[in-house]
Design a protein around this nucleic acid. Structure first.
Length: 484
RNA sequence: GGCCCCAUCGUCUAGUGGCCUAGGACGCCGCCCUCUCAAGGCGGAAACACGGGUUCGACUCCCGUUGGGGCUACCA
């Protein structure tokens, strides 16, 4: 059997992490099996669906590199086919016209015990006689089409994650297939599309597990073969509640904006509810993911989304991205901050790449390159007040005088230093420290603030060499003016 | 309320009756490295929800309890 899977988001919101994980699992399965990955937009509710949301979802998928082979199909453009299926069900007596108005239903529900919480449609229109139906049709009464749920049966189906599921039909109400305006509800459209698109595996969130019995009933009425069902455990917030805004970012595009890279996101999402087994490797490449992915190893229990682990994973992947590749991802950020120099593309390219490698181990997100890189990519910076307090300013004028002497001596020695490299710059600094009776650590701290404005930076001699002699001396001069 | 599903460290998970004194990862703590911060290395605290069975033997199988989640719309 050839594998045909689909991701079928409803464009009533962004592509959130749960949806992205569903898309990813579908995609991994399709890529592993050489199957077809179909994208279908479930926009049968025109009230809540917008084209901006569709575009956002597509962009999220593209960012993650989840390319689809068919679609996007839009359910809003297939309404006729659903209506036809509704007619077919009506003719086969698997469905019936329900003339109950929403108001009437609401009223009945309100009258029921428990505030109507366990009220189900009572099926009053089930046994309307042909004459009655004819009369109401002629009177122009609006009607919905409801599915005639078989009485006292068991529906059962196999789920590749949850196993065999059985439900009594008496617990299922006669659900609506076509609304009184003739549009299809989710249950009808999803079954219509999944059968017509010959979907082999329905891989979707476990929130659809209880609905599946309805879909199975529909397939049976239509005499269509059942797809294999694969329900994915849900991703919840840290408080075990549905992931929502108050837990932080929920949209994958927000994560992009926050400096996460798709490799990390994909890997993290893949490991939420799935693991490759014994060889419990954390960071897997896309190829490994495709090769190792296994539907039968998906967990049943819901998973809590942990942003900290995502960030760690991002740092892992970030450190493995080679500098030239990093460049293209960083450039837009730097340009936005006015920290881009066209020389990076020409004569200074190697220097730029080396500098990226220098700050890379400290970056957890792409956006970190802005502040980490600032001392190197820009000459305008302020001394961070805390850093200056700690390393530059002293209440004791003698200490300040000593520091000034040391920095003057350092600048002087560096001016004629050749070669100007890691070893020589360190030798000189330590010698000056000894001469001026300043601890190397203290002097280094001051120089670090002088050169970067920060108390946190790469190793000081790496910084000095990266800045090279000219800029180092400029900044030493600047700090001397600051101290005097 | 009814129906469905789930249950190993705080979190993601390994574990498919003896390999378990329960392994790894994130996070946390300590030490090392060291010019700061990361990275890296080493070490530590930290879990089989509970109660019954089944079995020579249960984290692993069955039942119940508790807890959690989902569905319960002319939303998807």
């Amino acid at each position: 059997m050839s594998v045909r899977v689909r991701f079928a988001p409803s464009p009533t919101g962004h592509l959130h992490v749960g949806g992205a994980r569903t898309a990813l699992f579908n995609w991994l399965f399709a890529r592993q099996t050489g199957g077809v990955f179909i994208l279908r937009i479930e926009d049968t509710d025109p009230e809540r669906s917008t084209s901006e949301m569709v575009e956002g979802i597509l962009e999220g998928l593209r960012w993650l590199g989840l390319d689809w082979d068919e679609g996007p199909h839009h359910q809003s453009q297939r309404l006729d086919s659903y209506r036809q299926m509704g007619r077919q069900l009506l003719e086969g007596n698997h469905a019936y016209r329900c003339f109950c108005t929403p108001e009437l239903l609401l009223h009945k529900k309100a009258q029921a015990p428990h505030g109507g919480r366990d009220w189900k449609y009572d099926g009053s229109c089930r046994k309307l006689s042909d004459d009655e139906i004819q009369a109401r049709l002629e009177a122009g009464d609006p009607f919905a089409v409801r599915f005639r749920v078989p009485e006292n049966q068991q529906v059962s189906f196999k789920d590749l994650v949850y196993g065999d599921i059985q439900v009594e039909t008496k617990t299922i109400e006669d659900f609506v297939l076509l609304r009184s305006d003739g549009t299809a509800t989710y249950h009808l459209s999803v079954v219509a599309d999944d059968t017509q698109m010959r979907i082999s595996h329905v891989v979707r969130g476990a929130d659809h597990l209880p609905n599946t019995s309805k879909h199975v009933l529909l397939c049976q009425a239509l005499e269509e073969p059942l797809p294999l069902y694969v329900h994915l455990p849900l991703i919840l917030g840290p408080d075990k509640k549905r992931l929502s805004k108050r837990h932080g970012a929920t949209s994958v595009l927000e994560y992009r904006q926050q400096g996460f890279i798709p490799e990390a996101m994909k890997n993290y999402l893949a490991r939420l509810g799935w693991s490759p087994g014994d060889d419990n490797e954390e960071s897997l490449s896309e190829e490994q993911l495709i090769r190792l992915f296994d539907l039968s190893r998906i967990n049943k229990a819901n998973a809590l989304f942990d942003p900290q682990k995502l960030e760690w994973m991002n740092a892992q992947f970030l450190s493995s991205v080679p500098a030239p590749e990093l460049e293209s991802r960083i450039r837009p950020l730097l340009q936005k901050e006015n920290m881009w120099d066209s020389a990076w593309e020409g004569s200074a390219r190697q220097w730029f790449l080396d500098t990226l490698d220098l700050i890379k181990p400290r970056a957890r997100r792409l956006s970190d390159f802005i502040h980490l890189g600032q001392p190197f990519f820009s000459d305008s910076f302020e001394y961070e007040s805390k850093a200056a307090q700690k390393y530059l300013v002293s209440e004791d004028p003698e200490v300040t005088a000593k520091l000034i002497l040391a920095i003057q001596g350092l600048a002087e020695a560096y001016r004629n230093l050749a070669p100007f490299d890691l070893e020589t710059t360190e030798q000189v600094l330590r010698k000056i420290g000894d001469e001026q009776q300043i601890k190397a650590g203290k002097l280094i701290g001051a120089v670090r603030v002088a050169l970067t404005g920060k108390s946190v930076a790469p190793g000081i001699f790496d910084v000095i060499v990266a800045l090279d002699k000219k800029r180092t001396l400029e900044r030493l001069d600047r700090v001397l003016k600051f101290l005097q």
